[in-house]
């Protein structure tokens, strides 16, 4: 108790930027959830409605976020580290491109034909692979071809999963 007073005497300042950001993050997520669930009825105890648990969880999340933000003013913690956007863009971008091309996609004016694993496989390996700092293009291209062939044989033929290979060319 007395210790906390000593803290207060030193004045309120952010002692753990990471915890403060984490607390704000939780509060924002909870706010988003509450906004999305705003029309869901709470129901009664006897017949709990679809909104009861999402809203309760969101409120608790927000409460924990507030606590986290407050403790960041009291306890010393870690600094906030920067983002490495290179990885985020290439690795996650590669995966998204895979999803867009494997069966094709249709978002508004953007039409992507159904390209299949023969195209999507190399795309994900090449795009994601370029996130590496010690990138070697020749090696990666060969690797992309080998991996795609291996995956086609493994998933399509050995395991028999219904994944399209190249519908525009092979019809499967």
């Amino acid at each position: 108790m007395s210790l906390n007073k000593i803290e207060q005497a030193r004045g309120l300042r952010v002692r753990s930027p990471q915890d403060l950001a984490a607390g704000i993050f939780m509060i924002l997520l909870a706010a988003l959830a509450l906004f999305l669930a705003r029309d869901l009825p709470l129901g009664t105890l006897r017949q709990i409605g679809p909104g009861m648990l999402p809203k309760s969880f969101a409120v608790i999340c927000a409460g924990l976020g507030v606590m986290l933000a407050l403790t960041s003013l009291v306890y010393k913690g870690e600094q906030l580290q920067g983002f490495s956007w290179r990885g985020v863009i290439f690795v996650l971008g590669g995966a998204v491109l895979f999803g867009l091309t494997i069966r094709g996609f249709d978002i508004g004016p953007l039409k992507v034909p159904q390209l299949g694993l023969v195209v999507s496989g190399p795309i994900v390996v090449l795009v994601a692979g370029s996130a590496a700092t010690d990138l070697r293009w020749k090696e990666l291209i060969i690797f992309a071809i080998v991996m795609t062939t291996f995956c086609a044989l493994l998933f399509k033929y050995a395991l028999g999963l219904p994944i399209p290979l190249a519908p525009w060319l092979l019809g499967i």
């Binding site: 060969i142 071809i145 080998v146 062939t149 060319l169 092979l170």
Partner: peptide, 21 residues
Amino acid sequence: MKKLTLGLAAAFTLALAGGAM
């Protein structure tokens, strides 16, 4: 390594020719 890749590429081309008819 390269030979293997070439062989696989050839196999793919053959498969394509068969399927496109």
